[in-house]
């Protein structure tokens, strides 16, 4: 209940869907109005709970797509065999209620600390969602921390937040690699992220960068071990895995 929640305790609260935005053919951003939301850090999650008429409940954890201080937003990819994501991406309408709790997590977060430089953000598919929160937070803070985002997607049409990423300002380099389909004349990277691509794209280890890697589990395993192989200390590689599905 509002005002009575004990700090640290998680309480389910009812939010209202204010907008649904198509990001790609299978990905939507859901903007929420959550009156009891206590705020969040860039990179944190929230839990969503759906309750069926017979009382059956399903919960999922999603990365928060908006920056601290902005209204809560989720970006959800529809998984064909999913239990929750088809409802969120196909059935949900503006004005609907959505039960959420959070924020959750304290590991995969960027607190806006200017002294930690630079940032190496690496996304596979919808793993870009918490990294977008970090980028927006950086922008809102007018931080000058240098950032590189390496974003692996199946094709250009599968790139989430493309307009926003293409407008990133000074200090942010966005590098795409397209794994399945490249447009005619594509001069960017192609194929999966591997050690050789990282040695070209990632900040050299002597820059003391901190890396945030988010994507499908095999993607994260490959990227994290490659970064460590290139000389990144393991504790400067923060990882978040969301399973073996999702396009990267």
């Amino acid at each position: 209940m509002a005002g009575t929640a004990v700090r640290g305790r998680l309480t389910w609260q009812v939010s209202a869907v204010t907008a649904l935005i198509d990001e790609t053919a299978s990905v939507k951003t859901i903007e929420l109005q959550a009156p009891d939301w206590a705020g969040h850090l860039a990179g944190q999650h929230l839990d969503v709970r759906l309750t069926a008429e017979d009382g059956y409940r399903a919960e999922r954890s999603y990365s928060i797509a908006s920056a601290p201080g902005e209204p809560v937003a989720l970006t959800v990819e529809r998984l064909e065999d999913g239990e929750v994501s088809p409802y969120l991406t196909e059935e949900l309408r503006p004005g609907d209620d959505l039960e959420i709790r959070g924020p959750v997590g304290g590991y995969f977060v960027w607190d806006g600390d200017d002294s930690v430089t630079p940032l190496m953000l690496i996304a596979g598919g919808s793993g870009v969602v918490p990294l977008r929160s970090i980028l927006r937070h950086r922008s809102n803070l007018r931080s000058t921390v240098p950032v590189r985002l390496l974003y692996s997607a199946r094709s250009l049409a599968d790139v989430i937040y493309r307009d926003e990423l293409d407008q990133e300002g000074a200090g942010v380099e966005v590098i795409y690699t397209l794994t399945r389909q490249q447009p005619q004349g594509w001069t960017g990277h192609r194929g999966r992220v591997d050690k050789s691509m990282l040695s070209e794209v990632a900040w050299p280890p002597d820059q003391q960068a901190i890396a945030y890697v988010c994507g499908p589990t095999p993607f994260v395993e490959t990227v994290a071990s490659s970064l460590v192989g290139l000389g990144y200390p393991a504790q400067r590689v923060k990882t978040e895995r969301f399973g073996g599905i999702g396009g990267s």
């Binding site: 998680l10 919960e59 959750v104 590991y107 994260v220 399973g243």
Partner: peptide
């Protein structure tokens, strides 16, 4: 579904322990 990592249990663990536990 493949395996996830401890981030995915953040909400459940906070529910049980009452504090943020993914950094534990």
């Amino acid at each position: 579904m493949d395996d996830l990592d401890g981030n995915a249990m953040g909400g459940l663990m906070q529910e049980i322990f009452g504090v943020e536990m993914t950094t534990a």
